[in-house]
Amino acid sequence: MTISTTDQRVLNDGRNDRLFRRSVSVAGIFVLVSLFLAAALMFKGGWDAFQTFGFRFLITEQWDPVQREFGALVPIYGTVVTSMIALLIAVPISFGIALFLTELSPNWLRTPVSSAIELLAGIPSIIYGMWGLFILVPFLGEHVFPWVDEHMGAWPFVGVLFQGPPLGVGMGTAGLVLAIMIIPFISSVMREVFLTVPAQLKESAYALGSTTFEVVWNIVVPYTRSATIGGIFLGLGRALGETMAVTFVLGNAHRLSFSLLEPGNSIAASIANEFTEADSPIYLSSLIALGFLLFVVTFIVLSIAKLMLRSLNKREGN
């Protein structure tokens, strides 16, 4: 029995539909699988180090390729401290920029300024690193660090943070560079969420005689709180994993020091600096273990960011 051309077409179309659906679902599953594969492979790569050093890996500061003793305390501490400094600088600045762009800026200035700030996010991180190393480090070393050491180093309790040689490299410098790098991310999220506040709410407050600052502080900020925190966590995720810029200005020292003026290390910088020099399997495994830690931490931070930002999407009706 022969089948008509129409039937043939229906058959063909059905087959093509199934084929298309199958290939796009394979691609979708590929995305899903690759993240878990990444986690699994890095856990496997770092297993040697986790097994050899156990919990000690996280709390000892010794990093000795010759004795083959590895503890990740210094890089972990450096990552946490530089990211915190970055947030301390970037959050208020980003808030100011978002405030400027949503409430203060004249209309003609709005687009140029916001595109310029976004341009900051487009500059490759290695450029930040070179600028940091060749321009910022000498400047800070000559003009800023000596002053900080002299004046703030004597403060009670916190003085220890500000003592040190005027090298210019160090955790303070890295924190500053990171701050500049994450400002565009945080400020663009803040600006976006500030714009979602219903005009009626703001206008009501203005009508009652509130000042601009009072409107922002008492209406806009509470209304957008969780999404704003989400944006900050997004920036934190960036800062934690940023590699090249930090590698240039951190000084790569495996010694624990509390001073922000002393060279330090971070997880990403250790991996970038030492990976190709790792001459023993346990050295390599320790570095991959560091990468796994970084992966887990950023996963958690980014998940929190996503959850916090969900309310924003709901409000926009997505």
Binding site: L41, M42, T243, A268
Partner: peptide, 21 residues
């Protein structure tokens, strides 16, 4: 969700992943 995590994941971690892969 997974894609958004990949989007913001540190690039050095992706490098390590491809190293092991």
């Amino acid at each position: 969700f997974v894609n958004d995590i990949l989007l913001s994941a540190p690039s050095i971690v992706l490098g390590l992943f491809v190293y092991t892969l």
